[in-house]
């Protein structure tokens, strides 16, 4: 195995583009190093991107927050402005792993590892986050929603690196939330995860909504029918019932040791109701 620590994103993309095979980006390493321990996994090249300028920074601009690919999730929880703007995104990122894992794991890594159960991804999708992607031809932007294409698979082309996540500043009267179900109190893989972002109108009714479901399909699911069910409501029971049913209907989970299909579908609706309440409160609704 070869270890490289380039100092520019251009060098990093060239290293990855020119690699014959089995080349990996190393950010926090909390997935990659675990894989490296397993039989049958081979890495010929590891490109550590943390020495590239900006990778370790959360940059707040007038309209956006830019979270570098090397920022450990623990640092998101320490960023008061980000917590105030996108509490659901930060809570989701801070649910990943133990204190020790939080010190290294990154949201970009969580996204590019492409686990269907990634906690931060539904929250990012609900928030409408974008990925800034560097490649040989320059930089492009893509919706976070479009990055995972299946378990362990992404739409990134050879040589491409997600260098940052870009979140717009939240709109007035908006709020986000993320909830997941696990059978213990912490440090487990989501059986179901739900991210919600609500924007209210001046009268306090839902003007627009985004609901993203995790761990109930091969990739994160944007539940558009469920979101539509909340528009115009103040989360009255009837609207919540329709929304929860639409979440269950949008879910296409597998049966595994952590949850059955039936259970996961139902829980998607239950969590969505609760997350919607939290997001509504945060948006200032009552």
């Amino acid at each position: 195995m070869r270890y490289e620590r380039p100092e520019t994103i251009v060098q990093a993309t060239h290293l990855l583009a020119e690699a014959d095979s089995n080349a990996f980006v190393l950010a926090g390493g909390t997935d990659l190093l675990v894989k490296m321990q397993s039989d049958g996994f081979e890495a010929d090249l590891v490109v550590d991107i943390k020495s590239i300028a900006g990778m370790g920074d959360v940059v707040e601009a007038d309209d956006t927050f830019v979270i570098g690919a090397g920022v450990p999730c623990a640092a998101l929880g320490e960023n008061d402005a980000l917590v105030a703007a996108w509490p659901g995104v930060v809570e989701a990122a801070n649910l990943i792993g133990s204190t020790q894992i939080q010190g290294r794991c990154t949201v970009v890594g969580n996204l590019c590892n492409a686990s269907p159960a990634a906690d931060s991804v539904p929250a990012l999708v609900a928030a409408g986050a974008k990925a800034k992607i560097a490649g040989l031809g320059g930089t492009r932007m893509a919706d976070v929603l479009d990055i995972p294409t299946g378990p362990g698979k992404t739409s990134l082309k050879k040589g491409e690196i997600v260098e940052a996540i870009v979140l717009d500043k939240p709109l007035a009267r908006s709020g986000d939330a993320y909830l997941r179900f696990i059978p213990r109190t912490e440090m487990d893989i989501a059986v179901v995860g739900v991210g919600i972002n609500l924007v209210l109108d001046e009268g306090g009714a839902v003007q627009s909504a985004r609901i993203a479901l995790g761990a109930v399909g091969p990739t994160v699911i944007l539940a558009e029918d469920a979101a539509q069910a909340l528009v115009g409501s103040k989360l009255e029971e009837t609207a919540l019932d329709v929304m929860a049913a639409a979440c269950s209907a949008a879910s296409h989970p597998i049966d595994d040791k952590r949850g059955t299909v039936e259970f996961r579908k139902q829980i998607a609706g239950v969590l969505a109701r609760r997350a919607a309440r939290i997001a509504f409160d945060r948006a200032g609704g009552n």
């Binding site: 909390t30 190093l33 675990v34 020790q100």
Partner: peptide, 16 residues
């Protein structure tokens, strides 16, 4: 503890 954050040293490369 690496740069002030507690981490699992089994998940850090020596080169890092």
């Amino acid at each position: 503890i690496v740069d002030g954050r507690v981490v699992c040293s089994c998940l850090v490369l020596g080169a890092e």
